[in-house]
Design a protein around this nucleic acid. Structure first.
Lengths: 148, 148
DNA sequence: TTAATTGCAAATGGTTTGCTTTTGC
DNA sequence: GCAAAAGCAAACCATTTGCAATTAA
């Protein structure tokens, strides 16, 4: 979650619901559940992860609904999906950072926000004569020093 | 191809065959065909692309063989595969650059080799306390100026 | 010789879709 | 009321795999 205070969490959920409604989605209980799970998750979950977490709160939800809701949220640019190391898509709220460091020992995915990344992007865009619409940096590695 | 002279091309094919043989592969006519196609391709082809190009030279080849040969070459670290924009893997010889700029209008994939990318990687690795084993930068954009 | 490779067809597995019923607004 | 969303099961489709026949070394 972007903010640790409870009200800010609720705010983000409410904001996302409002944005989703504005882009034509109906806010069903399932929709709210999925948005809440995304809001609470910091581990870049797969659709299956999200499905399992959603079932704990609402056992009637189907995986087809999870996929459909996630796709709608992505089409509305509220959620971003991308493949990291695995064959499955991982999902995260679109305002979160889009660059990742994957720990090869633990599978943990860490968001990267270093400002030099954008500077590099601008430099490359200029050099190659492109307007960059989207981009991502993916790193795979292991902890040094105290790490395993 | 990394070099434009014909002898250098043949050299790279021969080198890859030798490396493949050293890592336990048998060099069949299909293997040579796949390696030649990879050596000649600058467009980061998918397995299906490679299959089509291979069939023009040897109509008896099956897609299963293409996949198996590509997987063997990847296990030997002679070929790298990654997903860019599409659902399919794209393949390229491992000594080629691993960063890409995808033209959203044409689908063309351009290799990026700017040295600042490695500098940024080193900076981030140090900052986060990781040893980076692999990494990639993927950019999606459109040509500016004369572009559509 | 003999273990690796091949083609074919079937299996996999994450994601999507068709259909009918239910529901948000 | 009606278009959107739901569950279920079937369809998709890129990639993998089992098997029997072939082949590189």
């Amino acid at each position: 979650m972007a903010d640790t205070s409870e009200s800010a969490q609720g705010d983000r959920v409410r904001q996302l619901e409002a944005d989703a409604r504005r882009s034509g989605m109906r806010i069903t209980p399932h929709t709210t559940t999925i948005i809440q799970i995304l809001d609470e998750s910091t581990d870049h979950p797969t659709a299956e992860d999200i499905f399992e977490r959603a079932r704990e709160r609402d056992p009637s939800i189907s995986s087809a609904s999870v996929y459909r809701i996630l796709n709608k949220l992505e089409e509305s640019d509220l959620v971003r999906r991308q493949r990291l190391d695995s064959d499955r898509f991982r999902y995260e709220i679109a305002d979160e950072c889009r660059h990742h460091l994957v720990d090869l020992d633990t599978g943990q995915v860490v968001g990267i926000t270093d400002p030099e990344i954008d500077e590099l992007k601008d430099k490359i865009a200029k050099r190659h004569g492109y307007e960059i619409v989207d981009f991502r940096l993916e790193l795979f590695g292991r902890k040094t020093g105290g790490g395993s």
